[in-house]
Each structure stands twice: as C-alpha cells, then as structure tokens.
C-alpha cells in the first residue's frame, strides 16, 4: 500500500480532516487507553493539520476498545493480537513507517501527558538535522518532580548513559521523541528492547553515530499519574535490567 492509500484510509475513517500524503508519521503506542486515546489523537491531528501527517495508533493487545476509539478519532490502527510491551509497540510503528516510506516518526504516549503543543519544537530539531530528538521534561527547568528514589535512579543511570553518549541526557526515559529515517533503520532490529527503551538505547544511538538532541517539552498532568515502574518488584527488576543493559553497551558492537 502506498502513502496515498494510507491517507485515503484515514480519510474514510474521519472525513472531516482530509489527510494528504505526508512524510511524517505520528506513532502512539496504546495499551488499554480507550478513555484517552480519542482526545489525544484528535489533539495531535489538529496540531498537525497544516503538516498533514499520518497518525498511527499501535494497540498493544488492549482488552478495551482502544482500537475502535482511535479509529473513530481518525487514526490508522495497528493492533497486536497479544500484548508485547511498550517498546515492541513503538517498533511496530517504526516498521510501519519504513514499510510505507515515511521519512520521519514522531512518537508520543497515549495517556495524554505529552503536550501536543511541543510537537513543533521536536520537529524543528529534526529538520535541523538531528536523528533522534528527545523531548525532555527536565531541560530548562521543567516542572516535573518525580519521587526521591526514582530521581536517584534516574540520576545514576542518566549519568552513565550521558557518559556513553558523550552528551548530557537529562531525560532518557522520555517517550516523547522524533526520529529520522536513519534512526528508524537503526531501530528496525532485534536490538530494540521490547519492554522499555531507555538510556541504553540512547547510548547505542549516540555510539552508533546518530545525532542525538534534547529539546525541552511541557508535560501535562497524567490523569491518574500511574507510572509504568510502580510496585516493589518492578523497580528492582528495572534497576537490574538497566544495569545489565548499560554494562553491555561498550561490550557490544552494533552493526547497522
């Protein structure tokens, strides 16, 4: 299928806003977000009305009607029959973009915490020649204050990743990013983690010679503010996984 056909498919789902063939694909991974996905898709589409971008929601095996809501709001929907994880859902979006010849991807979360008003800042940095643009909640005095323990963990892992990357990474866990075609090709590989792409991925990106940039973004309050890393065992597993992944970064030679 061509981009034109995709645009047509989106048109047929929501005839209000015709979508011309575009080179930007907005990828929104969603898992059980039926309540919020519709408004997120609509906000993104109105924000990007001038650019005429494609919007792809990757439904990661939701048990609610996330797919239907997203489709009703005018997004193209790719549905995983089973839940694969946040990273795998993103990767589905990347692979879709590559398959259909999109030149760049903008990814954001489905829970509405990423302010669509910041999209332009991310895209500008991408147009300026970056391969991976990370929307940072902390750059230039962001308002986001995570709990103490998480702040310590983020600081330590961020420090290590910054060392590998050769630049300061203030928010390596941010899911608000813009990617160039080169970055998409780099992510179209089994090395991309299926659970949570994090500081280790950004370290790989920078070591691979892709240009990495951070821009400040605004965060909206997430309506129920639940983190993906809550509970007792999950943070411990997270610490283990990140330590292992970061320790292996210099030991792996990534081939394109």
């Amino acid at each position: 299928m061509t981009q034109g056909a995709l645009a047509k498919a989106q048109e047929s789902a929501a005839p209000v806003a015709p979508v011309a063939p575009s080179r930007l694909l907005v990828v929104i991974p969603a898992y059980n977000e039926a309540n919020r996905i519709g408004s997120v898709v609509r906000k993104v589409r109105s924000q990007l009305a001038a650019r005429a971008a494609g919007v792809l929601v990757v439904d990661d095996g939701s048990s609610d009607c996330t797919s239907e809501e997203a489709r009703a709001a005018g997004a193209t929907v790719a549905t995983h029959p089973v839940n694969l994880g946040y990273g795998a859902a993103l990767q589905t979006g990347y692979r879709f973009a590559l398959r259909h010849g999109f030149a760049s991807v903008l990814q954001m979360d489905a829970d509405g915490q990423h302010d669509p008003a910041s999209i332009c800042a991310l895209l500008d940095a991408l147009d300026a020649g970056a391969d991976v643009v990370v929307g940072s909640r902390f750059l230039h005095g962001g308002s986001y204050r995570p709990p103490l323990l998480r702040r310590i963990g983020m600081a330590i892992f961020g420090r290590i990743a910054s060392y590998y990357a050769g630049m300061k990474l203030t928010d390596p866990t941010s899911g608000y990013q813009a990617l160039s075609a080169r970055a998409l090709a780099f992510y179209d590989h089994d090395r991309y983690p299926p659970d949570y792409p994090d500081a280790d991925v950004l370290s790989m990106v920078a070591r691979h010679g892709l240009r990495l940039v951070e821009v400040p973004v605004r965060m909206l309050e997430s309506p129920d503010g639940k983190s993906m890393h809550s509970g007792v065992l999950k943070p411990l597993y997270y610490i283990f996984r990140m330590s292992l992944a970061l320790a292996l970064v210099p030991l792996r030679r990534e081939r394109p």
């Binding site: 792809l56 193209t76 790719a78 549905t79 995983h80 029959p81 692979r95 398959r99």
Partner: peptide
C-alpha cells in the same frame, strides 16, 4: 505479531 499488525493496518 508486529508483521500481522502492520499488514492489518
């Protein structure tokens, strides 16, 4: 699974 989702989309 990803391939299936992409094809379906």
């Amino acid at each position: 699974t990803q391939e299936l989702a992409i094809l379906q989309a």
